[in-house]
Amino acid sequence: MGASSTATSRVPVWDNARFVAITFVVVGHGIQRFTYDSDAGLVAYLFIYAFHMPLFAIISGYFSKSGPPTARQMRRVITDILVPYVIFESIWTLLHYVVEGRVSVNPTTPSWTLWFLLALGIFRLILPYLALLRWPLLWAVIASIGVGYFSNVDSTFSLSRAIGILPFFVLGWKLREWHLVERWRVAEAPAVLVRMGALAVLAIWAAVLWAFIDVWRATDLRFWFFYDDSYDGLGEDQWWAGAVRLSLLALAVLLSACVFVLVPRRQLFFTPLGQATMYVYLLHSFVLYPIRESGIIGDEITGWPWLLVMTVISIGISFALASPWVRWAARPLVEPRPRWLLHREIDTTTGPMRLGPSRTDPTGSRRG
């Protein structure tokens, strides 16, 4: 999955982890309607949202480079992030007009899931500068906590969210720099006791959510997991609000580690699908949008059986969107190659630059 990997030397655990992470993303979005009237739905939602995007950001950071970007890498920011963002933001604008009769052309405010695409672009731009500093992870944490005190830093170009989850991306990058896999043999199957400990932590988190569900609903805990609003916007303008975010950062790292421990290490039937996470991420919202907005999930559909059904449907959506035929059909949208847009130049390190199919997606995953 890394930039130095090849199709024959891929470590299955990373593709498995990527597909597990993106499936949690789809499930979290799929069950969102159940959070209003169902305690079980809110528990499941909070359980997932505590770690699903942090886990995705950690994995993305693990396979990112911190050196000065080459001309080829800068072109990839344009072709793999900016152009797809413009394409999908335009589609969303048209969709809102057709379905809702609403005309809102504002490319500075990402539609639904597109915020993470811009966040990845921001991460790529600032990582080389963070890498020049001592204690980059500490500075990322300080930035994440500090940005919550500024109400004027909002969702414009995903800036508030990008800064909010920046520590997870930097943590992933540092884990690779620390050679964690080589030192602790993380890619190999962990001991049974370690897996049992991970399951216990996840079970305790679920139990805490269920035991205090009225508190979490009253305090709107789910909005804290978005890393989007300022503390004042979340209704907590006290000086110690940053400590809450720090606690949530630590919780997300712990839960992400537990999930990673439980990810299978061997090649499985869904392992190749881990190379298509960007397809799933960008396309799944178009599948869920009509389900969420059509009223199919109404007030009367609130029980846990319906929650389970929607969870299974969401998992199926993740599998379907990662399939080869969907990737073939959607490649012009997800992996556009705008040769007309880019000036042909020479990269002094690699020679003439050819704009062929990208071997890496915006998260740094090596495509097979």
Rank of each mutant, 00 (worst) to 15 (best):
E300I: 04
V309K: 01
P290K: 06
A276W: 01
G235V: 10
V253T: 13
L288D: 00
F260Q: 00
E300G: 06
S294F: 11
F286R: 01
V244R: 14
S247H: 08
L288K: 00
V259S: 08
Y279W: 05
L288P: 00
F270T: 06
F226K: 01
F225S: 08
L246E: 07
P290A: 09
R292G: 10
V261L: 15
L246H: 04
L255C: 13
L248A: 13
G235E: 12
Y281R: 07
L249S: 07
D228A: 14
A252N: 07
V244Y: 13
T311Q: 02
G295P: 11
F269G: 12
Q275V: 11
L262K: 00
M278S: 04
R265G: 13
G242L: 07
D228I: 10
V244F: 14
L308Y: 02
F286T: 02
I301W: 09
Q275T: 15
A241R: 04
V312W: 04
R292H: 14
C258T: 00
V309I: 09
A276T: 04
G242Q: 07
L255S: 07
L248Y: 10
R266K: 12
L251R: 03
W239D: 14
I296N: 08
T277N: 03
G303Q: 07
L262S: 06
F286D: 01
E236T: 08
I291F: 11
G235D: 12
T277Q: 04
I297D: 00
Y279K: 01
V280I: 11
E300A: 10
Y289L: 10
P305E: 00
R265Y: 06
T271F: 05
L307N: 00
F226A: 08
F286N: 02
